[in-house]
Design a protein around this nucleic acid. Structure first.
Lengths: 230, 230
DNA sequence: ATTTCGGCTACTGTATACAAATTGCCACGA
DNA sequence: TCGTGGCAATTTGTATACAGTAGCCGAAAT
C-alpha cells in the first residue's frame, strides 16, 4: 500500500475530497428532482421546506440555489424566492437552436479527432440501444440515450463544450418527457447515422446530422407548439 | 402620486427591485475585479477578507462565489477555498473554439433576422470605432468593442445565445489584455466585414467571418502559446 | 357589496457563532 | 540534514438567530 502510494504520486487526489459539501449534495438532489419532473415548472422552492426535507440548514440550500440558478434550472427573484424554471415556446426554440449548434460543433470535432477507443464504446452503446428497441425494452433507452450523448461529447475532446452541452441538455430535458416509442426509434436511427459519419471521418456530415438530430427531436415532441420553425 | 400609479400600471416594476441583494453586488464587484485584472489568475479569494473588504458578512460572499464558480471565473475546491480561474493553453483553445462557434451561429441568425434598427446602431458603433482609430484614441475601442459585440448579439435575437456568449467572452477576456494597436485595427476591420455580411443578408458569410474573427483574435494574442492551431 | 387599511404570516436577506478541516510551523529525534 | 510528529492558526463548512419585505386576509368604512 505504501508502495502503491509511492509509485503512483501522479494523481494527488485529496483524500478529503471524497465527502462533498452539503451544498453540492443538495444541488444534486434538487437538480435530479427537477429533471425527473418531481418538482414541476413554476413550482416554488422554499428554502425552509427544502432545508428540512434534506435535514440541513438553510445555508447549503441557498448556495445550491445560486448554482442551479446559474444553470438556468430555477428562476430567482429578489425577495420573492425561487421557482422551477419553465420554458416558453420561444425559449425552447432558442435553447434547441443553441444546443443543435453545439452538438453539431462537437460532432465535427469528434469526426476530426476520431478516437478509436471512444468510437468503440459508442458502437457498443449503439448496439445495446438497437437490441433494446428490438426487444421492446424502451425504458432502457433513456439511460442509453444519455450514455450515447455523453460518449459523443467526450469524443469531441472539448471540456467547455462538454459542460455546456450537458447544461443545455438538462435545461431542455423537460421538453422530451413522456415521448413515445416511435420517437425513440427515429431518434436512435439518427444516432446510428451520426456515429457512421464520425467513424467515416466526415466532419461536415457528422456536424449536420447532429445539428438536425437536436432540431428533429424538438420537432417531434408531443405537446402543441404554437410556432413552427419553418 | 396616486394618479401616476393608476395611470401607469403598464410597467409593474417592483419598487423593491431596485436594491439588489448583497450577493449580487458582491458578485458584480468580484467579477469586475477579475475581468479588470485586479484579481489575478491563481490568486486566492478568502471569504473573510472579501467580506471585510465589502463590509458584509460571509454569507453574501459565499453565495456570490457559487455564481462566479458556475460562470467559470473562479475555481472552487472543497474545503480549500476559491482561486481566480486560470486558463491553460488547452482550455484557452477550447474556449475560443466554442466562442467562435457561438458567435458564428449568432451572426448567421443576425443576418437572417436583419433587424434594421439594430443594424443602424451597429453601423453607428462601427463608425465611432473607425473614427477612434483614425484619431488614435485607442482606449475607447475597448468599450466600443464590447458595444459592437453586444449589439450584434441582440441582433441574433436569441437570449440563450446572448447569455452564453457573454459568459464565454468574460472567461476568455483575460487572453486579450494589453493587446496592441495593430490588433485593434485588424480586429475592427473584421467587425466591418461581419456587419457588411449581416446587412447584405448573407448568413453563411456572416457566420464564417464571425467564427474566424474569434479565432483570429485568439491567434493574435501576444503571449507565447505552446500550440498553434494551424 | 366594494374598497381600503391594518396587521399578521410566511418567507427571504443578512449577520453571527460554532464545528471541522487544512496548512504551516517548530521542535524533536534519527 | 532530513524526516516526523504534533500543535496552532487560518479558513471553510454548517447552523442558528434576527431583521426586513411581500403577500394575504379580515375588519371597518363608505
Amino acid at each position: 500500500m505504501a508502495d502503491s502510494a509511492a509509485l503512483a504520486p501522479i494523481r494527488p487526489r485529496r483524500i478529503g475530497a471524497d465527502h462533498a459539501p452539503l451544498r453540492d449534495k443538495v444541488a444534486d438532489e434538487i437538480r435530479a428532482a427537477i429533471l425527473s419532473g418531481q418538482y414541476k415548472p413554476g413550482e416554488r422552492l422554499v428554502e425552509d421546506r427544502l432545508a428540512e426535507e434534506f435535514g440541513v440548514s438553510r445555508n447549503p440550500v441557498r448556495e445550491a440555489m445560486r448554482t442551479l440558478a446559474s444553470e438556468g434550472l430555477i428562476e430567482v427573484t429578489a425577495r420573492r424566492g425561487a421557482v422551477v424554471a419553465s420554458l416558453s415556446p420561444q425559449e425552447a426554440e432558442e435553447l434547441l437552436e443553441v444546443r443543435a449548434t453545439l452538438e453539431g460543433a462537437n460532432a465535427r470535432l469528434a469526426a476530426r479527432r476520431h478516437d478509436p477507443e471512444i468510437l468503440e464504446q459508442l458502437k457498443n452503446v449503439l448496439n445495446r440501444g438497437n437490441a433494446a428497441i428490438e426487444a421492446g425494452r424502451l425504458p432502457e433507452l433513456t439511460d442509453l440515450n444519455i450514455a450515447f450523448h455523453n460518449h459523443l461529447a467526450r469524443a469531441g475532446r472539448n471540456r467547455v463544450l462538454v459542460d455546456l452541452m450537458k447544461s443545455l441538455r438538462d435545461r431542455s430535458g423537460s421538453l422530451f418527457q413522456g415521448v413515445g416509442i416511435e420517437f425513440a426509434r427515429e431518434s436512435w436511427a439518427e444516432h446510428a447515422s451520426i456515429l457512421r459519419a464520425v467513424i467515416a471521418g466526415d466532419p461536415e456530415l457528422a456536424s449536420m446530422l447532429a445539428y438536425r438530430h437536436v432540431l428533429n427531436a424538438g420537432a417531434r415532441r408531443p405537446p402543441a407548439q404554437p410556432e413552427d420553425l419553418e
